[in-house]
């Protein structure tokens, strides 16, 4: 209940600074998907692979949240997964989770600047800096979030749960090709993830392999279909 509901009538835009589905001109804005997860699990590699698979069918832009360098943005530029003007980096002051959850203003501006500069987009990927298992995206910043972990980080991570593993719209377990070498039990991970997440989906990926990102790309396409068809 808003005690200052009279202000809502005078300033209807006050609740729409974050992620209102439609802009002032009535056009539907891009679907915003966040990618979070621990350091080294393959977030940037997933973003790169998604861009390569989807860039011919969708208009895409990427916001990276590097913790103390521009390395993630530069990796994407070097790999030329998208033209340079479609990739932008946000600085997070040693606190990556703050920039995606508690104070999303810099990320919102980065997304809006991309939309202003590039015209209508279909998809904006917001990649968090590597963080801990509690880091999740604010609903004011993204419409859906992917949490990326990997088998080499320990096969007990799905069992441990935490907001990222438990609540993300898609859990990606990456580097399945390494499982035999690090003694990770993929079936156990799937079982634990199911116990933590119920019906929420889990994708096992090996980005080293041809087409390895397909399960994630398919999920993104599905979300996009739902987004485009969403309530007007």
């Amino acid at each position: 209940m808003h005690l200052d509901h009279d202000l809502d009538e005078t300033f209807p835009e006050r609740h729409t600074y974050s992620a209102a589905p439609k802009g002032p001109d009535g056009t539907r804005r891009a679907l915003r998907i966040g990618l979070g997860g621990p350091v080294g699990s393959g977030k940037t590699a997933t973003v790169a692979a998604l861009c390569r698979v989807l860039r011919d069918e969708l208009s895409i832009a990427v916001v990276t949240n590097d913790i103390y360098t521009r390395e993630d943005a530069e990796f994407l530029l070097r790999e030329a997964v998208l033209p340079a003007e479609r990739i932008t980096a946000v600085e997070t002051g040693a606190c990556p989770h703050t920039a995606i959850r508690d104070d999303i203003s810099a990320n919102l501006e980065a997304v809006e600047d991309l939309e202003d500069a590039l015209g209508p987009l279909d998809l904006v990927l917001v990649e968090s800096g590597g963080d801990n298992l509690t880091a999740t995206f604010s609903k004011g910043l993204v419409d859906a979030q992917i949490f990326v972990i990997d088998v080499a980080g320990g096969d007990d991570i799905p069992r441990k749960g935490g907001p990222g593993v438990t609540t993300a719209d898609l859990l990606v377990v990456n580097k399945t090709d390494l499982a035999p070498y690090v003694g990770s039990d993929l079936e156990g991970m799937a079982r634990d993830a199911k116990a933590q997440r119920g019906e929420l989906p889990v994708a096992f990926t090996s980005l080293k392999n041809e087409g390895g990102v397909k399960p994630v790309a398919d999920w993104v396409r599905e979300r996009l279909t739902g987004w485009t068809a969403g309530p007007t």
């Binding site: 997070t92 920039a99 104070d103």
Partner: peptide, 9 residues
């Protein structure tokens, strides 16, 4: 914690 970006500076 006022969400106006100060944390990154």
């Amino acid at each position: 914690r006022f969400p106006a970006g100060g944390h990154a500076h």
